[in-house]
């Protein structure tokens, strides 16, 4: 059986930055790229199944993105898995999560994957949308925000916990094949060994275009998206509200804020 794990190399914005000339994104110069934190957990979950069941399970990381996305794939491959897949071409520029999901679904079909483990969220845009969209594209069932997973390869259902608001969890069983979106804390992601990092450099990463997957230009990029960015701008107020005054005044205000947040004011 095969588990496909879509990952994303997310942009982390510098403290000071500029908006791109066309006003629709930030200037790429101000972005550092790193593997989405949630994807560390979804990959770890796949690694654990692979280790438990050995050759019965194949795990494949997939990135939909330009060259820098390869770094994320190598990071995963340094921990395990034998090969990765990266899909990108110029026509895919401007793809929203719906268009990206269409691509992931096509890869899942092509790979004849049995399960897809996606991160519940990506920290750059916070859409929380891609994994569940993949399920709908494939006609599979899905569970979002999975915090515990009990699965034997070959079973036709999987038992999961779904993390709800306020720490409550729901236990449910879901038919396979399924897309599960994985929540932080479901496991403890490992660090790659130095040897693993070296070996990952030699592992094959297959590069595909949307055409290779049988998708047309209308299926990807802005044309294949359910939304379009009009403009990006700086919000008026800065993020942290600074509390001024003497320590006595600052502490009084802190107490007020804490009580307000606790709802006991």
């Amino acid at each position: 059986m095969k588990i496909l794990v879509p990952i994303k190399q997310v942009g982390v914005l510098d403290e000071d930055f500029e908006i791109r000339d066309d006003g629709r994104d930030v200037d790429l110069d101000y972005l550092d790229f790193e593997l989405n934190e949630w994807d560390d957990y979804s990959w770890e979950e796949a690694l654990r199944l692979q280790e438990e069941f050995g050759d019965a399970v194949e795990i494949v990381p997939l990135a939909v993105g330009p060259e820098e996305a390869e770094e994320g794939l190598r990071k995963c491959l340094a921990k395990g898995g034998e090969r990765g897949i990266r899909v990108w071409d110029d026509a895919m520029q401007g793809s929203d999560p719906m268009a990206v999901a269409r691509v992931i679904a096509k890869v899942a079909e092509r790979e004849q994957a049995d399960m897809v483990f996606a991160g519940a969220l990506a920290s750059d845009h916070g859409f929380a949308q891609t994994g569940v969209s993949v399920a709908a594209q494939l006609g599979w069932s899905q569970v979002a925000v999975v915090s515990k997973l009990d699965y034997q390869p070959g079973d036709n259902s999987v038992k999961v916990n779904r993390e709800l608001e306020g720490g409550l969890e729901e236990v449910l069983s879901v038919q396979t094949p399924a897309v599960l979106t994985i929540q932080l804390g479901i496991n403890e992601p490992r660090y790659a060994s130095l040897r693993g990092i070296k070996q990952a450099k030699a592992k094959p990463v297959e590069e595909l275009s949307h055409g290779d997957l049988g998708l047309s230009d209308e299926d990807v990029g802005e044309a294949g998206s359910a939304s379009r960015v009009r403009r990006m701008y700086l919000p008026e107020k800065g993020q942290a509200e600074l509390i001024e005054g003497t320590p006595a005044e600052q502490a009084e205000r802190l107490v007020e804020i804490i009580n307000e947040l606790k709802g006991v004011a």
């Binding site: 914005l13 750059d124 960015v229 009009r230 990006m232 701008y233 700086l234 919000p235």
Partner: peptide
């Protein structure tokens, strides 16, 4: 919002 709330984004359809 995007990029850890550092920017706001207007979306149309």
């Amino acid at each position: 919002a995007a990029y850890a709330e550092k920017v706001h984004v207007e979306i149309d359809f």
